[in-house]
Design a protein around this nucleic acid. Structure first.
Length: 109
DNA sequence: TCGATGACTATAG
DNA sequence: CCTATAGCCATCG
């Protein structure tokens, strides 16, 4: 574990995402101060969510609103289904009305 | 320390 | 809407 702060901050921000809202990797990365590490955000999440049901990683999508991380969830209970249960409409691995549902950490806090 | 990897992003065609 | 390319950076072996 080197910069464990990075991973911990990512987890915390994800947990702060309101139900029925989504955010992007870039937004999280920029909020914690590492603007260019959007990729690492997703990478760390994949390793951190394992064994944690308190991390709503399904609310994190890429800048296009695509569910780029759905393959990290169980095929029986996929990311798309979880979002729909929160009132978010998803079609073809893409969040509908993504811009309106997008949650900005630094803006809301 | 180094090289490869990836749940990314922006730009260009 | 699509693919291609380049930049980006924490993590892993």
């Amino acid at each position: 574990m080197t910069s464990q702060n990075f991973a911990e901050r990512v987890i915390q921000v994800v947990q702060l995402i309101p139900k029925g809202r989504v955010t992007t990797y870039g937004a999280i990365a920029h909020y914690i101060g590492t603007g260019g590490s959007a990729r690492t955000v997703g990478y760390v999440l994949g390793n951190s969510i394992e064994g944690r049901m308190d991390v709503p990683a399904h609310r994190v999508v890429n800048s296009a609103g695509l569910l780029s991380g759905r393959h990290a969830f169980s095929p029986e209970y996929p990311m798309e289904q979880r979002l729909r249960e929160e009132g978010i409409e998803v079609e073809n691995n893409r969040v509908l009305d993504f811009k309106n549902l997008l949650w900005h950490p630094a803006l809301e806090l």
